[in-house]
Design a protein around this nucleic acid. Structure first.
Lengths: 286, 286
DNA sequence: TCAAAAACATCGATAGAGTTGATGAATGCT
DNA sequence: AGCATTCATCAACTCTATCGATGTTTTTGA
């Protein structure tokens, strides 16, 4: 395999038509350049040079190789520059899996902030529930997963690093002024996704009753509409209210029942620069 | 400056997604590959990898660089192949400066033979008198000069290597049967180029007279036509008669007055392969 | 739950390549 | 003829690359 250094030396010799001049340009000693040329000839098995008078002259083969060498060196140079752009975060990409309500409530400003801090850094988003988000993280399909859990004491998923972003309060949605869960033990309930439903059941359990769930839907706008129409009451995360707030329902914060939101990453620290940049923005905005 | 070996290793790791597999493909030990990757990261200053589970994963920057590396390696490969083609003489070029009569008498078969031995090897010809041919050789404008001299004892031009090709007999052109120069001491003469004219003068001097030169022309066809028309007699090189032979003139060989024809090369041996190939053909055909 | 296997990083030793300064040979200019 | 320039060769030193052995972490299988 050819050596880039030798090709660079060859190109310099071809440019200057002289070993000494090439050595001066590359800050090498003259014998070093001479040696490299000899090695290059031996390695390629081709005759590249010929002594002519007190100088040397490139053969046809030498000229051809020098030309190719110049092209190749240019490519290497440009690859190097491209890489520098990535280091400086003026290029690159972060792929993020986010759960629905955080997507609408958080990501617009995150995206704007990221774009202003690092123009050229691309942000790809996927709307995914936490378990699938973690799976995608493991599979390398995303770099960051924004996930939540209600129970802070449950163990971190193995191999995953969690960065706490915010505690999202839970709100009770009603059409009247009864602002605690216990006051609605005899009402019908509207529940959200599997995890939110499990959370609801646990909250009710604290008050000593089991809720009668009349409707189940993932759609946060739908939940509010159902409550507004008098179909029942519901609990809903605060982030969901940031995205859409139905004026016909009353929202009362349920104390001591926050949803914990995290940014999850996979792989050993340090994080790749694009990932680290996104985490910075997430923690500063949350 | 990036190192080709490291880029090749990076590309292999990107292909296999594993250090161990890449090491196996490249016939390296695993620690060696690991070390190279670490050096590559340090040299570029970019984070290219991240440990993930029991394997490693390339970052965005690493993937980009691996892609560029593949392109670059392809270029190097193709340059290497191109060079091999030159070594095998299936490509390349020989530039030759030839004097007129050798051009028409010798070069057609030389060209054909060269093409059959080395298809793809290009032959460029320039019609030049010997002094200019030598100058072009020195200047690197041609690789070989086909030249002649009458006086074998004159020193070789400095720095030039001469390979003897053939001795070209001189012929006396007349319209009658007087077949020696001495018999034409009172006739008028037609002379060729400067060197041929000097040679003619010397031949006559051996016979003890100075020729009366009535016409001078470089054109070998013209010389024969002038002689045929009775304007005078002439001496002409054998090679010139090979190219064109006027049926109305008689040609008598002048013994002991051959023109010596050489292939001249410049620079230290060994000659570049294309040059050597042409010399082979020249010596075998002459 | 525990043990074995797999994958990568680190360490120490050795062989090889690269670099330099000095010297020699050949060429071209004055 | 003498001198300056240019490139090749040589010997010595420094640095890098490579390998095998070892340690650490993760994953898989019993």
């Amino acid at each position: 395999m050819l050596d880039l250094n030798r090709l660079r030396i060859l190109a310099a010799v071809a440019r200057h038509g002289s070993v000494t001049a090439a050595a001066a340009e590359l800050h090498y000693s003259q014998p070093s350049v001479s040696h490299h040329l000899a090695r290059l000839e031996a390695e390629t098995g081709a005759q590249l040079f010929q002594r002519a008078g007190r100088g040397i002259r490139l053969t046809e083969a030498g000229l051809v190789l020098a030309e190719r060498a110049t092209e190749i060196l240019g490519r290497v140079e440009s690859a190097s520059a491209e890489l520098d752009a990535h280091v400086g975060l003026s290029a690159g990409r972060v792929r993020v899996a986010v759960f629905g309500s955080a997507l609408v409530a958080l990501m617009p400003e995150v995206s704007a902030e990221l774009a202003s801090r690092h123009p050229g850094l691309r942000l790809d988003l996927v709307d995914t529930h936490p378990p699938e988000a973690i799976a995608m993280l493991r599979a390398g399909e995303v770099d960051v997963a924004v996930v939540f859990r209600y129970d802070e004491t449950e163990p971190d998923p193995p191999g995953i690093r969690l960065t706490h972003l915010l505690d999202d309060p839970t709100y009770l949605l009603t059409t009247d002024d009864r602002d605690t869960i216990g006051q609605h033990r005899d009402d019908r309930w509207v529940a959200g996704c599997v995890r939110c439903r499990a959370h609801l059941v646990e909250l009710c359990d604290r008050e000593g009753f089991e809720p009668e769930v009349a409707f189940t839907t993932d759609d946060m706008v739908g939940i509010q509409a159902l409550v507004a129409s008098g179909m029942g009451v519901a609990t809903i995360p605060g982030l969901a209210l940031r995205g859409h707030r139905n004026p016909d329902v009353n929202a009362h914060e349920v104390p001591g029942a926050p949803r914990h939101v995290y940014a999850a990453t996979y792989g050993e620290p340090p994080d790749p620069p694009p990932t680290a940049a996104l985490l910075d923005v997430l923690t500063s905005l949350a």
